[in-house]
Simulated assay, not measured.
Amino acid sequence: MDNHENSRGWGCISRLVADWAPWPRDSLGSPSQREDMVLAPEHSKDETLARDILPPTWQRLEAASSAALSDTLGRHIRERPAAETLKLEGDGVRSVFFLLSGWFAVSKSMEDGHRQILDLMLAGDVLNPGSADASASAVHIEVLADVAFSAVPLDVWERLLDEQPQIRRLHDTNMKASMARMAERMLRLGKGSAASRIAYALIELCMRLDAIGAAEEDGFHVPLTQQQLGDFTGLSAVHICRTLRRMSRKEIISVEEHMHILIRDMDALAEIAEVDPDSLRSQIIPAA
Score class of each variant (00 low, 15 high):
D218Q: 10
V106S: 08
P81V: 01
E204Y: 07
Q116E: 14
E184T: 05
V255S: 08
I117P: 11
G90Y: 02
F98I: 03
M259L: 14
S248Q: 10
M110F: 08
I167T: 12
I240W: 05
A40E: 12
S70W: 01
M1C: 06
K250V: 02
K108D: 03
M207R: 15
A215Q: 11
R168F: 06
R264Q: 15
G92W: 05
R75D: 00
S137F: 04
P56C: 02
K108P: 00
G11K: 11
A50Y: 12
H140C: 01
S150F: 04
E47L: 09
M1Y: 09
A123M: 06
R246W: 03
R249F: 01
A194V: 11
M175V: 08
Q59G: 03
E163Q: 14
L39S: 12
L49H: 09
L154F: 02
L189Q: 15
T72F: 00
L189P: 03
K108E: 08
D265L: 05
E251C: 02
L161Y: 02
R264E: 13
T233I: 06
N174Q: 12
R188H: 07
H239N: 02
R264D: 11
E5M: 10
D2G: 14
N6K: 15
T243G: 00
D162H: 04
L209C: 06
S70D: 00
E216F: 10
P165N: 06
S44Q: 06
L160R: 07
L144T: 02
A82E: 03
L39Y: 03
T173E: 15
S282C: 13
E42G: 01
L209E: 14
W23D: 12
N6V: 10
M259R: 08
S254M: 03
Q226R: 09
G192T: 10
H171I: 00
P277F: 15
G190E: 13
A18C: 04
S14Q: 09
A268L: 14
G74S: 00
A268E: 15
I253D: 06
H258V: 03
F220P: 08
R181W: 10
Q226D: 07
N6F: 05
I13H: 09
I77S: 01
D119G: 06
A68Y: 00
V152F: 01
V255Y: 11
E251R: 12
E89S: 05
L229Q: 07
L88Q: 11
A268V: 09
M259I: 13
H258C: 03
V17F: 09
S282I: 13
A273P: 15
I167G: 03
I117Y: 11
D162K: 10
